[in-house]
Structures are given as C-alpha cells and as structure tokens.
Design a protein around this nucleic acid. Structure first.
Length: 154
DNA sequence: GCCAACGTTGGC
DNA sequence: GCCAACGTTGGC
C-alpha cells in the first residue's frame, strides 16, 4: 500500500528546480536532523511512495511531486566534517540519521500556495497546516493527497 | 526527571 | 524584522 508524504525545503536552499537538474532527477534527501522526521524516512517510507515537494518561507506552497526511489540508508553527511549537518556524536556502527532518495515526478504549472491550502475545509486536518508544525518530513493522508491532486488537474 | 536557556523554523 | 512554537541541551 503506497503512502503519501510531504517534504519541505526553502527554495533558495534546495528547490524543485534543483531536483529537476539532478542526474536522473534524483537526490538523496540529506540533512534532516529531527528524530520524528527521521523515523518517517527510516521506518515507514517505501519505494514508490508519493511525496509532495513544498517550498517553505518564500512563497510557501506545494510546488510539485516526487517519489521515494530507495530504501532508507544512513545519511552520509552526518560524518562529513565539512557539512553543516555533521553530527560528531553519530557512530558509524550505530548511525543516528537516515534518509531516502527522492526522484522528481512533476512540477505543477501553478504552485498550490499555503493560503489556498488553508482555504479548503477538506484539508483542515493536514499536518502541514497545524499550528506550530515544523516537521520537514511529514505524512499526508490519502484523502488529502487525492484532494490536492484534483486541484492540480482542475 | 525536571525545566530554564538557547537555537531554529517558518509564517507574516 | 518580528515573534510564536518547537526541539534540544545541560545543570541540578
């Protein structure tokens, strides 16, 4: 059974256009340093799961769709001394941080802005829309996912 | 185990 | 730039 997710990124940090430019339009979703977000990737994401790509802060909204294309594996940047997300406390024999690879699927002609998302009562239960929601990787309910997809095609 | 202090996220 | 909300750290 496929599951649905949403990942956040600031566009000036890593945008959906950056993903499109990657070899095979695929990237390792590295740098996540939140345990809840890690658990979603490590324990629940499966190859083929569908992932909304969300730009935060500047013109916040869902800008496209990606797909999980690897199983979870240790995030190599946790052991990279030159990486801002380096975590010296993480032991190679007991990695603290995991990630999955994401592959580009679609870029929406028109992003679905945060304010638009908020305007639909059907989406009022979305994790993304909850007050104080700061998770950078979060689940999306099937009915929410399908509702949003219909907004794209209509 | 508690909790104050701090740093970060992210909307506005 | 402001500030609310949140997670993490570390002293006790």
């Amino acid at each position: 059974m496929l599951q649905y997710w949403l990942v956040k990124s600031e566009a000036n940090c890593y945008s959906i256009d950056d993903l499109i430019k990657e070899p095979n339009q695929t990237t390792a979703w590295s740098g996540v340093r939140n345990y809840q977000a890690r658990n979603f990737m490590r324990d629940m994401m499966k190859i083929g799961d569908q992932v909304f790509f969300y730009h935060s802060v500047t013109n916040p909204g869902i800008v496209g769709l990606a797909e999980v294309c690897s199983k979870a594996y240790p995030d190599p940047t946790q052991w990279d001394m030159n990486d801002p997300h380096c975590d010296p406390k993480s032991q190679p024999d007991n990695p603290r941080w995991y990630l999955v690879d994401l592959k580009f699927v679609d870029k929406f002609k028109t992003p679905i802005s945060l304010s638009i998302l908020r305007s639909y009562s059907e989406l009022s239960g979305m994790e993304l829309l909850k007050k104080g929601s700061r998770l950078s990787v979060m689940p999306v309910q099937k009915n929410e996912f399908e509702f949003i997809l219909k907004l794209i095609t209509s």
